[in-house]
Amino acid sequence: MSHLDALESQSIYILREAYNRLKPLGMLWSLGKDSNVMLWLARKAFLGHVPFAAIHVDTGKKFPEMYEFRERFSKEWNLNLIVRDCPPVDSVDPSLPPAARSAARKTEGLKRVMNEFGFKGIIAGIRRDEQATRAKERVFSPRADNGAWNFRDQPPEFWDHFKSDLPEGAHLRVHPLLAWTELDIWRYIERENIPVVSLYYTKNGKRYRSLGDQDITSPVESNASTIAEIIQELETTKTSERAGRAMDHEREDAFERLRASGYM
């Protein structure tokens, strides 16, 4: 069994656990590389089907390429797509620094989706190697009814036994990609031939490594125009993936606060 096979198998196991234990279940589809891999893994787990909703919490600030991608592949992959807008920025905690505040709109948007559909499980494509508080996540991570993450008291989780019983109103975030790295994601995309938005490839000497909102994400210097070149670039780089995300650098605790209140 290769490294990628092992990661794939573990993610399939997690997705099947979520599908068996948590109803109703939804998957966040941000249109980025990770969530495309996640959808792909779901189709592997459920033999070509995606037996739950794919949710796009739309900030309205995505790149036009991403909206085109959404229209095309939601049809091609036969997704049960839910798109919901986020509230305006002035409805978000004003004590957050500007970029984090803008990102927090997504948390609010997600809360609205939760209220509307009452999901018990939300599958999200975060990875440990992205950010230090994400590195401390559980695979099945409980969220209170207001979406808050009680990171000071996470439930024990070992031997692939996940906590799946929750009080009314609370939900579980399910993280099938926690053990993957950015490189694993690209190698898997290459191996499986998974479509991704063109923004990841170079254009005028720059490309996006991570796709957030247009106003708070910046591209990195790169000439990589194929997946193989992206992989090659990542094998030697020493900059972190989220270097282009403004909100990660505003204040030491900005990301923790965002995540504690329900951000992915």
């Binding site: 230090a132 508080t133 923790e256």
Partner: peptide, 22 residues
């Protein structure tokens, strides 16, 4: 502090939760 990412961990100089790093 590389691993102890939570403010509470840094302020108290103690690890609260497990973490993984590559």
């Amino acid at each position: 502090f590389l691993l102890d990412a939570f403010q509470a961990e840094r302020d108290q100089g103690i690890t609260i939760d497990t973490t993984q790093i590559f």
